[in-house]
Design a protein around this nucleic acid. Structure first.
Ligand code: DCP
Ligand code: MG
Length: 1139
DNA sequence: ATCCTCCCCTAC
DNA sequence: TAAGGTAGGGGAGGAT
């Protein structure tokens, strides 16, 4: 877990690393020997309170603390807490005597803090970050700042929150990084205090002596505009926190002498000076993207996560479908034959019972849940050391730069650092040069992506064999629900009088298994909810397991800080410091829920409020539908002309297409993200071929494929992308990063589903779209029409009008900016269409400023804060083509997802694609392009199939295909019963798994009707009615099978959201009750006999399949009801009766 | 009062 | 040489 994001891109290590560096440098040399095993120290230390003096001699402690406290430390200013944190931080990087030094300092500070209380307001409004070693120490300066009403910023994570930086020296990288910030010497503060007034900081401005290199920081400001918006404005650097401390604009930054330019990387400059080199190593290279992605660790991490989620989902679906493909316990059914880093081709075989509740249905924050957070210790390093045992015990890091002791000035990033390396203060994400500075003897080993993939699959396979449910977190991390197994073990342990913790034993069993198959250590945190399990892992690492019990939560959490909670990073921490005065969890726990909400937002505030109390209702997720697909490269982007940029865009578009096709999706919205070099930044930033400080722009527009449909066509994507990029009119030489994101995704198969009533634009033909493109795919050799480098669009339509049959908006309502963003082919189609209808548009009318803008003349800034003239909405596809086929996102998979949007029960019109289908009794298009013949071939009755909800149809197809494919089609699908895993596949010595024991059975027998409130709004009722419709189809469709867990999960969420007062009103409750009643009725209709059957005793053999299925359904029902009651109890104080 | 869009933020 | 990718949660504020 660890991993903090190091800062946004190269800022993170700041305080920590710099401090560590300072410490090393000043105090003396590092003493590697002192690194011990860090393990033991962990437990007790973390919890140690603030008491000042703790001997910090042991590196271990240092280590663990550093790990935990990590970058943040000096949080709030609570004297005690703060001091302690600082110490911890410093101690982290410490070596020998330095620790002593810090210890003393800490004691001293504590005393000082004690009498600080309220000081002057001299520094009020200032948020100061102290960089590196300073003459008055950091602690002393911090003290001074706080005493005088200023805010001490321990980290530079959120530069937007820092007004000034104080330093005595800066590395080249820092100089560059801070170039836009106000950097002053400590004297500024000291003198101001002396003077009793805040003196002008510029008089104490820090002037760098020299420079060298190192990482840089840069980050862009986000400037964004939607297509609709007029581009005329300059980009105002919105607030890009990171880069500009308090400087909001480049201009402002430029005003500062020393910031006028950033630090540059001489090596990069030299390389870039060579045309041949450029051609071969930057974005202009034909195979740049391929080579880049092949070596990008972050790309691999993202890709693997996505693939793992798919594998897990697939495996679970298979389990649910009862198709136990020759699987014995969980294992990788297939491993990609050819090596490769992709997980594709592999398959995880779930061992558990298909009917398993997977724990998902457990009551919220139910203390009965047993969640384990499993995470490899320094994964990349551990994997690499398996074949390099001689390096174990040494400070090792994984990074691209491999030259023995070289890399003194390497900007290569350290992906993972061994625990020995961490004891030197080295962290994941740090540059090798920084690491080398901290530890000259650092050993570097190369990436071995394929090995990581293999280990990960083995790891997941082991987990799958033990988990009731599993959520893939990353290549080396996963969350598993082992509630059922552990419950069994507990019963067994209780019977045997064992005093061991079954959960921990089980975790150790899992650890041993992973160790056996990978040779690597996995640490496991155990708790009754996800939040706590993650926290427990901190203490479990390295190489251990830890069960955080409910009774120990308060004590465990109190000494930790905000960023230790998953989901709360540096920016949130900064807000906490400013608005709450502390980031210490113990202190934050004293704040009211409203205080937290006011400071961090309602949702975040409540999440924190509960989290501070160890409460977390988050359920494991393993089947969420994808919402976006993107491709972005912000490294090595160096163009010389528009042709190269366009060529690149086309290659990226092809990549996007591959990704969309891989998941069989198409989209109807596209967003371009552009990073443009900050005018004041050097051409070549500190980081080799990095993007350096940039201004960030984004522009979104509709993605319209042939026929006006959603698409994945690379030509179309490229055309829209290029158009979008051109609209910015940026000098191609200034581009440093490009991203293409596709949203409003739909299943490619479902695409054809066009609600009957909806009319499509009578585009003449689709191919028109790609027409302009000359080249096939790789490169657009040509620009469509206006190839003018600069920018924009071309023609304005001038139609004529006419009545329209379709739902085309009157031309005058067409947003010209949108129009211009369309590919020429589409523009023509539209024009023709309007022309056909002879509607005369209000010409320029609609777009006030629009008309002029286009010529692309003005390069400066197109994107800027929007323009009033056009509202974004109009820009959207909907605005332009209101009648667009409402192919709503029918993400085929989840029923409930559709039903349970964010908020309440009501379904918004836009999300009602599913409704549209359902309402129209007979769904127009039977599913995706599945022909009737195909259906029959799969043993499905087309007629019946057509009546099913889309999701159900898909499910049926999946099952049918699997059955057919596996041949395991014992009997007709209808005969499948809920299978139990062969026998429980528990580890030896463990008890077999049984069907999920029914939770309490609160409800009474039948008798529908009656309940709290009565429906109030007809509308709501109607909606609920639709939900009921779906429900009936669902139950009916699965009457021979146990319900799919995913569906259950969605339904469950729908119900819970409806009941949750925060999200839904009373009508939500009403809806929930109605749906549950209906479900009850349906279950009784099919399985009245098994409603009260107790599932306690295991039945290895399915006595009667029907019974098994019925039991599964009833168990599911009870599970959802239980969850519903938990929420209801919280909100109303009691359960909800369905009678 | 919602919903929806456009971001920021976080994580690995 | 180095390979700073990506997806989803949630908040602010406008549209409905
Ligand atoms: N900034 C980062 C963070 C992580 N990773 C990669 C390398 C890590 O090995 C892997 C897993 O990340 P973790 O956060 O789990 O870190 P480790 O596994 O290295 O260490 P640990 O989990 O023991 O803290 O992801 C990376 O490339 N860059
Ligand atoms: Mg790890």
């Amino acid at each position: 877990m660890a991993s903090q994001d190091s800062s946004e891109y190269y800022f993170d290590d700041d305080s920590q690393i710099l401090n560590a560096l300072e410490g090393v440098t000043l105090p003396g040399d590092v003493e590697p020997e002192q690194i011990e095993e860090l393990k033991d120290s962990q437990e007790s230390e973390e919890l140690e309170p603030p008491p000042p003096a703790q001997p910090q001699t042991h590196l271990k402690r240092t280590f663990s603390q550093s790990q935990e406290d990590d970058d943040d430390e000096g949080e709030g200013r609570e004297s005690d807490v703060q001091v302690e944190d600082d110490e911890a931080v410093y101690g982290a990087s410490r070596f020998g005597d330095f620790g002593q030094y810090m210890r003393r300092k800490r004691a001293k500070l504590q005393i000082q803090n004690a009498d600080i209380s309220e000081g002057s307001r001299l520094f009020k409004g200032l948020a100061i970050y102290i960089n590196g070693w300073t003459q008055p120490s950091v602690q002393e300066l911090r003290q001074l700042i706080i005493e005088h009403g200023g805010i001490f910023q321990p980290y530079l994570d959120n530069k937007g929150l820092v007004t000034h930086i104080i330093t005595c020296s800066l590395t080249p990288a820092k100089i560059k990084e801070f170039k836009h910030m106000k950097v002053a010497r400590p004297e500024w503060l000291l003198e101001s205090v002396k003077a009793g007034v805040l003196l002008p900081w510029r008089e104490f401005q820090y002037i760098p002596e020299e420079r060298s290199e190192s990482s840089q920081g840069g980050k862009p400001k986000q400037l964004q505009s939607s297509l609709l918006v007029q581009p005329s404005l300059p980009v105002k650097p919105a607030q890009d926190p990171l880069y500009t401390t308090d400087i909001k604009t480049s201009a402002e930054a430029a005003a500062i002498p020393s910031y006028a330019s950033d630090i540059s990387n001489p090596n990069a400059r030299k390389a870039m000076a060579n045309p041949e080199w450029r051609k071969a190593h930057t974005s202009v290279s034909a195979d740049f993207i391929e080579g880049y992605y092949k070596n990008s660790r972050l790309h691999h991490l993202s890709t693997w996560k996505s693939e793992l989620k798919d594998l897990v989902q697939e495996a679970q679906e298979r389990a649910e479908a009862n198709v136990q493909s020759a699987a014995q316990g969980g294992h990788i059914g297939k491993v990609p034959s050819e090596g490769g880093v992709s997980m594709r081709g592999a398959a995880l075989v779930p061992p558990k019972s298909p009917s398993r509740w997977k724990g998902k249905g457990k009551a919220l924050d139910d203390h009965d849940r047993v969640i384990m957070h499993c995470d490899f210790d320094c994964f990349f390093v551990s994997a690499g050391l398996v074949s390099r045992p001689e390096l174990k015990g040494k400070p090792v890091v994984v990074c691209h730069s491999q030259g023995g002791t070289g890399g003194a000035s390497s900007t290569s990033e350290i992906a993972s650092a061994s625990y020995e390396a961490r004891s030197f203060g080295i962290k994941n994400g740090m540059s090798l040069q920084q690491g080398r500075a901290l530890c000259p003897d650092l050993v570097t080993i190369p990436y071995e992506f394929e090995r990581y993939k293999q280990f990960s699959l083995k790891f997941y396979t082991v987990l799958m064999s033990h988990a009731d449910d599993l959520q893939a977190v990353s290549v080396d991390e996963a969350l598993i629900d082992v509630t059922e197994v552990v419950s069994q073990l507990r019963r067994q342990a209780a019977a045997e009088g064992s005093q061991y913790d079954p959960a921990k034993d089980y975790a150790e069993t899992i650890r041993a298994e992973v160790r056996k198959v990978t040779g690597c250590e996995v640490s496991i945190g155990i708790a009754h909810n996800i939040l706590l399990a993650r926290l427990a892992t901190r203490k479990a690492k390295p190489g251990g397991s830890y069960h955080l019990l409910p009774e120990d939560v308060a004590e465990y959490l109190a000494p930790l800080e905000l960023t230790n909670l998953h989901g709360f990073g540096r920016h949130t921490k900064q807000k906490a410091i400013e608005k709450l005065g502390t980031v210490n969890l113990g202190e934050l726990a004293k704040k009211s829920k409203s205080q937290l909400s006011d400071a961090l937002g309602k949702g975040t505030g409540e999440k924190l409020y509960n989290g501070l109390r160890g409460i977390d209702d988050q359920q494991l997720e393993s089947d969420k539908p994808r919402k976006s697909v993107s491709c972005e490269i912000n490294y090595g982007i160096r163009f010389e002309n528009n042709e190269q940029a366009e060529q690149f865009i086309y290659q990226m578009a092809a990549e996007v297409k591959r990704r969309l096709d891989a998941i069989d999706m198409v989209g109807r919205s596209i967003t371009m993200k552009i990073m443009k070099r900050d005018p004041t930044a050097p051409l070549e930033p500190a980081k080799f071929l990095g993007h350096g400080p940039c201004d960030l722009f984004s522009k979104q527009g509709p993605l319209i494929g042939p026929g006006g449909k959603a698409t994945s066509d690379d030509q179309v994507i490229a055309e829209f992308s290029w158009r979008l990029l051109k609209s910015f009119a940026f000098d191609p030489k200034e581009l440093r990063g490009i991203g293409i994101q596709i949203t409003k995704l739909e299943s490619a198969n479902a695409a054809p589903n066009i609600p009957a009533g909806q009319a499509l634009l009578p585009f003449k033909r689709l191919e028109g779209i790609s027409t302009s493109k000359v080249t096939g795919k790789a490169g657009p050799s040509h620009v469509p029409q206006n190839s003018a480098q600069a920018m924009p669009p071309p023609p304005l339509p001038e139609p004529t009008k006419q009545s329209n049959v379709l739902e085309l908006p009157s031309f005058s309502q067409v947003d010209m900016s949108v129009f211009e963003a369309l590919p020429p082919s589409l523009q023509q189609e539209l024009k023709d269409e309007y022309s056909r209808r002879s509607e005369t548009p209000g010409a320029g009318g609609a777009g006030p400023e629009r008309a002029a803008g286009p010529s692309g003349i003005n390069p400066p800034r197109p994107a800027s804060p929007t323009k009033p003239a056009f509202n974004r909405r109009s820009a959207t596809p909907a605005g332009l083509f209101p009648a667009k086929p409402a192919t709503k996102g029918i993400n085929v998979k989840r029923i409930t997802h559709q039903l349970a949007p964010n908020s309440n029960a009501s379904i918004s019109p836009q999300k009602s694609a599913l409704y549209a289908l359902l309402r129209k009794k007979p769904p127009k298009l039977v599913t995706s392009r599945v022909t009737e013949a195909k259906l029959r071939d799969l043993g499905i009755d087309p007629e019946v199939f057509a009546m099913l909800p889309k999701q159900v149809q898909d499910e049926q197809l999946v099952r049918a295909r699997i059955l057919k494919e596996k041949g395991t089609l014992p009997e007709a699908p209808t005969q499948r019963k809920v299978l139990k895993p062969k026998k429980p596949t528990l580890p030896p010595g463990f008890v077999v798994y049984r069907a999920p024991p029914p939770k309490a059975r609160y409800y009474n027998p039948p008798a529908l009707r009656r309940q709290g409130k009565s429906k109030k709004e007809k509308l709501v009722f109607t909606e609920a009615d639709d939900v009921q419709n779906v429900l009936e189809k669902w139950v009916t469709a699965y009457k021979h099978w146990a319900p799919r867990e995913k569906d259950v999960e969605y339904l469950s969420k729908f119900i819970l959201n409806s009941v949750d007062g925060a999200k839904a009103g009373d009508r939500g409750v009403e809806t929930a009750v109605m749906v549950m009643k209906w479900w009850l009725v349906l279950l009784r209709r099919f399985w009245a006999g098994s409603e009260f059957v107790d599932d306690e005793e295991d039945e290895d053999i399915d006595g009667s399949q029907v019974d098994q299925v019925g039991k599964a359904w009833w168990g599911t029902f009870r599970g959802v009801k239980a969850q519903m009651d938990v929420v209801a109890r919280k909100r109303f104080g009691g359960c909800i009766s369905l009678r």
